Deep mutational scan, measured.
Amino acid sequence: TETREFDNEEEARKEAERLRRKGQDVQIRKKGNRWELRRT
């Protein structure tokens, strides 16, 4: 599992969408005042 953190939700969602188009399974969750993007 690979995780990346983003400062805002929009960036996290854009990156998640990009990875999903490549066929990756991605989850986003709020972590304090940041957003965590998890690739499984």
Rank of each mutant, 00 (worst) to 15 (best):
E5G: 06
W35K: 02
E5Y: 15
Q24K: 06
E2T: 11
V26W: 14
K30Y: 04
V26M: 05
E36G: 01
R38L: 15
Q27H: 10
K30T: 03
F6Q: 00
R34Q: 09
R4T: 12
N33L: 06
K30W: 04
E2V: 12
R20Y: 05
D25F: 13
L19S: 03
D25K: 12
N33G: 08
E11D: 13
R13V: 12
E5S: 12
R21D: 09
N8K: 05
G23W: 03
I28T: 02
K31H: 08
E9V: 09
K30F: 06
N8F: 07
G32F: 02
E36H: 04
Q27G: 05
R20W: 09
R13N: 11
F6S: 00
E9I: 13
T1K: 09
I28P: 02
R13W: 11
N8L: 06
K30P: 06
L19A: 05
D7E: 10
E11L: 05
K31I: 14
R29P: 01
D7Y: 07
E11R: 03
E36S: 02
E15P: 00
K14S: 11
R4P: 05
K22A: 14
N8E: 05
N8M: 04
R29V: 15
E17G: 05
D25I: 14
T3P: 11
I28M: 05
K22G: 09
R4I: 14
A12T: 02
L19G: 02
L37F: 00
E5K: 06
W35P: 02
E11V: 05
R18E: 10
Q24L: 14
V26H: 03
V26L: 03
E10W: 12
N33E: 11
R21P: 01
L37C: 11
G23E: 02
K31W: 04
W35Q: 02
E2N: 10
N8V: 05
T1H: 13
R34E: 03
D7M: 07
G32S: 02
R38D: 10
K14G: 07
E2W: 15
D7K: 05
E2L: 13
R21M: 12
F6E: 00
E10A: 10
I28G: 00
E2D: 11
E17S: 07
E9P: 05
N33S: 08
T40D: 09
T3Q: 08
E9L: 14
D25A: 12
W35V: 01
R21H: 08
K31L: 11
Q24Y: 15
R21K: 12
L19E: 04
K31T: 09
R20V: 05
Q27L: 10
N33Y: 04
E15I: 05
K31S: 07
A16W: 09
R4M: 15
K31P: 01
A16G: 06
L37V: 15
Q27P: 00
W35A: 02
R38V: 15
E10N: 07
R4L: 15
K30A: 05
A12S: 01
L37Y: 00
Q27R: 07
E17H: 07
R18N: 10
K14T: 11
V26D: 00
R18S: 08
F6A: 01
R38G: 07
D7C: 08
E15N: 03
F6W: 04
Q24N: 07
R39M: 15
E2Y: 14
L37S: 02
